[in-house]
Computed example of a mutant assay.
Amino acid sequence: MSQVDQLHDITSELYELSQQPPKATEREEFVEKLTGLLEQRERLIEGLEGPYTDEEREKGQEVIRMNKVVNERVSIHMKQLKTEIAHMKKRKTSNQKYTNPYQSVSSYDGMFLDKKK
């Protein structure tokens, strides 16, 4: 199997993976699998050498088309994950404020400081 065929297989696997939004319980697995496939694809791209046959050129064009879709889908998934993380952080701080409402109040409030000696 040539490197172009391997690249095509990995890109098609990425394409299939990116089409399905990750479930809440499977996010970590999704991100790990995604990064693993992206690293494999990067290594294959760095090792590509050429001249290419007509069949390899066609597969290369298909890889380029799939790559555009993969990039768009992955960026959408990552934006969703970032917003969910931001919501979780906000929820955490609001829960902390609810359990300890006087945590952020300055300790000098209501105190009299005598400046004379």
Rank of each mutant, 00 (worst) to 15 (best):
D5T: 15
L7H: 12
L7V: 11
D9S: 13
D9N: 13
D9Q: 15
T11R: 11
E13A: 14
Y15S: 12
Y15K: 08
Y15R: 09
E16M: 06
E16D: 12
E16W: 01
L17Y: 04
S18D: 02
Q19R: 13
P21D: 11
P22H: 03
P22V: 02
P22R: 04
K23E: 07
K23L: 02
T25F: 00
E26M: 02
R27D: 01
E28N: 08
E28K: 10
E29I: 05
F30L: 05
F30I: 05
V31R: 03
E32D: 07
L34K: 06
L34V: 04
L34Y: 02
T35H: 07
G36Y: 01
L37T: 03
L38G: 07
L38H: 08
Q40H: 01
R41G: 02
E42C: 00
R43Q: 07
R43P: 00
R43Y: 00
L44Y: 04
I45M: 14
L48T: 04
G50N: 05
P51M: 05
Y52K: 09
T53F: 02
D54E: 15
D54V: 08
E58L: 14
E58G: 10
K59M: 14
Q61K: 14
E62Q: 15
E62N: 12
V63D: 07
V63M: 12
V63T: 13
V63A: 11
V63N: 10
I64V: 15
I64C: 09
R65P: 02
V70W: 06
N71G: 13
N71C: 08
E72S: 13
